[in-house]
């Protein structure tokens, strides 16, 4: 397809056509679903968290190519991060990792950030003791912290 003309760059197209982390985690530790008021897209993220660290992140997205690519990239980027780190996750990381998005599509990456944050907040609601600064085993504490 060297003569193909793409709306998005190759990285975005690849994540749209072959998304990583597609699906739902059964009995996830955190579930977040958010909608974009601007365009109507909806993104759902499920997380498996062990010892304060994201072991697995999956997504399902109702949205355009860049929304699907953003979900794929975002779930890939946050795997392995601590809850505290993931709470600081920014859409800019998604944009950078995708090699840029058209300006009108930046909000898709914001939606991915929000879906992850919503899933983390769901997790923290279930496990308030894990909140950063809650004095428990939150943040990047090692083995021995209460896991699932």
């Amino acid at each position: 397809m060297s003569d193909a003309h793409n709306l998005y760059n190759d990285t975005v197209m690849d994540h749209f056509l072959n998304p990583l982390n597609l699906g739902d985690i059964p009995e996830a530790d955190g579930v977040g679903e958010v909608g974009a008021a601007a365009c109507g897209d909806i993104m759902k993220v499920t997380l498996r968290i062990k010892n304060g660290r994201i072991e697995e992140a999956r997504f399902k997205t109702f949205g355009c190519g860049s929304a699907i690519a953003s979900s794929s990239m975002a779930t890939e980027l946050i795997r392995g991060r601590t809850v505290e780190e993931a709470l600081r996750f920014s859409n800019q990381e998604v944009v950078n990792a995708l090699g840029g998005l058209p300006p009108v599509k930046i909000h898709c990456s914001v939606l991915a950030e929000e879906a992850i944050r919503a899933a983390l907040e769901d997790y923290l609601k279930r496990h308030p003791e894990k909140a950063p600064g809650a004095g428990g085993a939150g943040g990047g504490s090692g083995p021995g912290a209460a896991g699932a």
């Binding site: 679903e33 958010v34 974009a36 909806i42 914001v110």
Partner: peptide
């Protein structure tokens, strides 16, 4: 109804 329930969720919206 579903879209309205999940839209605008989450803090720190940047839009």
């Amino acid at each position: 109804v579903h879209a309205a329930a999940v839209s605008g969720k989450g803090p720190g919206r940047k839009e």
